[in-house]
């Protein structure tokens, strides 16, 4: 039962990822990526991570993808790739490298291949959000705080990046326009 569910979800994730890669339209790409994220969220659930499942959906599928879609539409950047590719020669190379990377990853995965995850009493209670929260506020308190600072800096950075251009633009229009 689990295996069937995994296979379906994995197929959906792969299809979403490949479709994102090949879509000409950036909006489509974003939507396919959303599909992919949702599938991964389901996989998290299969791996006994209900908390991450929730975050994946809210933060990634919710907040981040909305941001992506917003920027795509704001900039009108749906289709910028209609001009001929100036470095088209590196596409086959990229594919070859991708195959090589995949090969290395698969080989590594097979060499250290773990089998079926262990069951038992410990497994039954694994992934309790309460346990995760406790860890966050005890052993990982410092990284947690640092994450907060990173987010703050990100906010400041975004404001600065856009404030600068605006104040300058207010003074005089850029010469190119």
């Amino acid at each position: 039962m689990d295996l069937i569910l995994f296979l379906i979800t994995a197929a959906v994730a792969l299809i979403g990822a490949i479709a994102m890669l090949v879509s000409r339209n950036a909006v489509h790409s974003a939507l396919f990526l959303l599909l992919n994220f949702a599938a991964i969220a389901v996989l998290f659930l299969l791996l006994q991570s209900p908390f991450l499942f929730a975050i994946q959906l809210t933060v990634y599928a919710g907040a981040i993808m909305v941001l992506f879609l917003f920027v795509v539409m704001l900039l009108g950047a749906e289709q910028v790739e209609d001009t001929p590719d100036r470095i088209a020669w590196q596409r086959p190379l990229a594919v070859a490298l991708g195959v090589g990377l995949l090969g290395v990853a698969v080989l590594a995965a097979l060499r250290y291949a773990p089998g079926i995850p262990p069951g038992g009493a410990a497994a039954a209670t694994f992934g309790d959000p309460a346990e995760l929260g406790r860890l966050l506020f005890t052993r990982y308190l410092l990284p947690f705080q640092v994450t907060g600072i990173i987010l703050l800096i990100a906010v400041v950075g975004v404001v600065v990046l856009n404030q600068y251009g605006r104040s300058k633009a207010a003074l005089k229009p850029p010469p190119g326009d």
């Binding site: 590196q90 990229a94 490298l97 090589g100 990377l101």
Partner: peptide
Amino acid sequence: YVRTYALVFTAGVVLVLSFML
């Protein structure tokens, strides 16, 4: 071209990983 740099970078990653493997 950032993509060319990324290509070279990826090639390096594949090489190092192969070496480690």
